[in-house]
């Protein structure tokens, strides 16, 4: 039996591998353990199996956070995996470092979620991004309703 990459249902995979339905389910189960298959559907929908020769990488970083909170969705430029806790404030700084117009626009939506302003401004100071954070915040405030930055952090040179 040869390893097959592609998108299948149980029936098409069984056909491609020349296996019975039961053996195909067992085969998929083995692939799942190796993280080589992604399943969508189920219940009333037919299950669709995406099979790849390399493991699917589960990300939980910048792009996941931005795509969760922003109206503007981004296609990840890289896989971002965080081991530990990743905050909204750190994501804003990362967005500034990535720096292209669409990323900045999407990042600005994160200001709606900022709770810890001192953390944001300390990070901004550490990475020399204070002015850019303020600029992005002002842009966000002009475009949509979002949380207010404490006065002590505004207009500092």
């Amino acid at each position: 039996m040869e390893f097959t990459e592609g998108t299948f249902t149980i029936e098409t995979l069984a056909n491609a591998l020349n296996l019975t339905r039961g053996s195909t389910i067992n085969y998929i189960s083995k692939l799942k353990k190796a993280n080589l298959v992604m399943v969508s559907g189920g219940g009333r929908q037919k299950k669709i199996y995406k099979i790849r020769s390399l493991p699917f990488i589960k990300t939980n970083g910048f792009y996941d956070l931005v795509n969760k909170y922003s109206k503007i969705k981004l296609v990840p430029k890289f896989n971002h995996i965080v081991h530990g806790s990743y905050s909204i404030e750190k994501a804003i700084i990362d967005g500034l470092f990535i720096g292209d117009a669409r990323t900045l626009e999407a990042t600005s939506y994160l200001f709606k979620q900022v709770k810890n302003w001192p953390r944001l401004m300390n990070l901004a100071k550490k990475f020399h991004k204070s002015d850019e954070v303020r600029k992005l915040y002002e842009k966000a405030r002009a475009n949509f309703k979002c949380r207010k930055m404490p006065k002590r952090y505004l207009n500092k040179n």
Binding site: I57, G61, F78, N79, H80, I81, V82, H83, S85
Partner: peptide, 8 residues
């Protein structure tokens, strides 16, 4: 680069 792993 392909991926970024942050160990925090």
């Amino acid at each position: 680069f392909f991926a970024r792993h942050d160990f925090i």
